[in-house]
Write a protein that binds this DNA or RNA. Sequence first.
DNA 1: TTAATATATCAATGAAAATTGATATAACTA
DNA 2: TAGTTATATCAATTTTCATTGATATATTAA
Lengths: 105, 105
Amino acid sequence: MKIKCCQRKEFDKKLFDLNEFLKAVSDENRLRILCILKSGPRCVCDIWENLELSQNLVSHHLKALKDFGLLKSERSGSNIIYSINDNNIDKYLKSLNIFLKKYDN
Amino acid sequence: MKIKCCQRKEFDKKLFDLNEFLKAVSDENRLRILCILKSGPRCVCDIWENLELSQNLVSHHLKALKDFGLLKSERSGSNIIYSINDNNIDKYLKSLNIFLKKYDN
DNA sequence: TTAATATATCAATGAAAATTGATATAACTA
DNA sequence: TAGTTATATCAATTTTCATTGATATATTAA
């Protein structure tokens, strides 16, 4: 018995993207980083000092989140200020909601 | 500078649970399984034949999703029929939405 | 009660990704 | 310019977890 939802061509791409988003955020440290940045833009040092993580580790997670478009950054003097990219987060949240909610296909 | 969101005691548990949910679903095969089951309850064989995955691999993913409460199962003759546990999925979706949306704390 | 089918479990392997340590770069400050 | 601070990068290690192969269990059918 062939089931509909897995037959569509465009489904693969959609599902791949959704999974990339889930992989990007399914990590406690990244969730904490997102939580901190929800309170407003912060420099890297504010983040790693609050989370009690090493500087390079936080830098690595920030890069991953930024590369995926969930964060933005800008230089301010010697600091790099990171902030949430709300538009993209909303986009992926919406996509996930549609995907997991009942009877959307 | 101490940032509010990471100081709360109950936050740890909430964030841990949320992350467990994200880890449970951040896998292409599991997303495909969820998609198939959204179309209705299915036995294990329907799933692995559709996804062209090995039987034991599908069984393993089904177990993970069920252990986490995202799926239910019941025996029907020699088959085990899996289905979505909508309540739990909605619960976690809601939690994730609140967590990631702007200014919820 | 034997064979066949459906599903689950378990140990071993492999791959992806987090973490660490060391170092590089860039911007301030004295 | 030299020293200091903030951040990024890179290679090595470790951890986590999906996948595989083999086998066990449970149900049905002959």
